[in-house]
Design a protein around this nucleic acid. Structure first.
Lengths: 158, 158
DNA sequence: CTGGATGCAAAAGATTTGCAAGGTG
DNA sequence: CACCTTGCAAATCTTTTGCATCCAG
């Protein structure tokens, strides 16, 4: 399946004696539709796409995200300096390419990383969790702008 | 070069009209000796390994780290949820393997990731910055403990 | 000397926690 | 009905800023 449904969440929760609540479903829906989002973005999304009375408290979002990650429904990655971003687990068979130029996040086939994971496992006995893998660098567009011939860093920019 | 010396820092700074100060050298030394460290760890290290009067203020550490990253002397990675960790740039030919079990950080040869970087570049035009690459997962030891037969975490699936 | 750098304290964010009230099973 | 969840507010932590003072060049 390529989409985590409310029922799936529901089931996963009950399996563990946890409760299926409307807030948790809202959070999951937000993460699903946003693709990848920080706790705050999730909060905003829910607030925007529901009746005012259906908004979810930020701390509840944090708790829901942490819980859903624990039961494997979502996973998180560090895209930038600030907050971590969450994504639905079914969305996890992609590498995340985070551009330090424009901040964009694109995806690539996870299979590309399997050889690396295999090599690391063979060499160090370390089992890579591919769901958390994100590559930082420059997207095609920003590469053009920063120019290949430059001397490197030091371009003032906060 | 396999080690960033105080003189190298000095030079890199002056080249850009910036000033070489004892604080910046202390920070660099801390990062060098610690291998990888958060701003706070750097601060603690300096405080521990110098006369009390030579300690560096935390905000100075933040500023120094940011500056040194900009001029390419150090680079940072997100090892865990919390603070980012910095490492000297010359120390960058390693992959970081971050264990979610014990929190340990070990290293592996960066060359292992070059094929991946090449594939991503070819496929998406995205130029991976290998200096920022870290893999999350379970180290050999923790794999043994969490054991394949355990109830595990979110291996579930969607 | 001059302008960049530092320390300090306060400001701004991000995340967590305690607890009473509310809702799910 | 029992107990997990939520909302809210306060407590923590982390990172950033404003400014007067200090020091490298």
């Amino acid at each position: 399946m390529s989409q985590v449904t409310a029922e799936a969440l529901d089931a996963a929760l009950r399996e563990r004696g946890l409760r299926a609540t409307p807030q948790r479903r809202s959070v999951l829906r937000a993460v699903t539709e946003l693709g990848h989002a920080t706790p705050e973005e999730v909060c905003d999304f829910v607030e925007t796409h529901s009746e005012p009375r259906d908004s979810v408290n930020l701390s509840t979002v944090y708790r829901a995200l942490e819980l859903m990650e624990k039961i494997g429904v979502v996973s998180h990655t560090h895209l930038t300096h600030g907050s971590p971003t969450y994504q639905v687990a079914s969305h996890v068979n992609h590498l995340h390419l985070v551009c330090r130029g424009c901040g964009s996040v694109t995806e690539a086939d996870l299979d590309l990383a399997r050889p690396l994971a295999a090599a690391v496992l063979a060499g160090s006995g370390f089992q890579t969790d591919l769901a958390h893998l994100s590559l930082h660098g420059l997207c095609a567009q920003c590469r053009g702008e920063e120019g290949p011939g430059s001397h490197g860093h030091g371009h003032g920019h906060s």
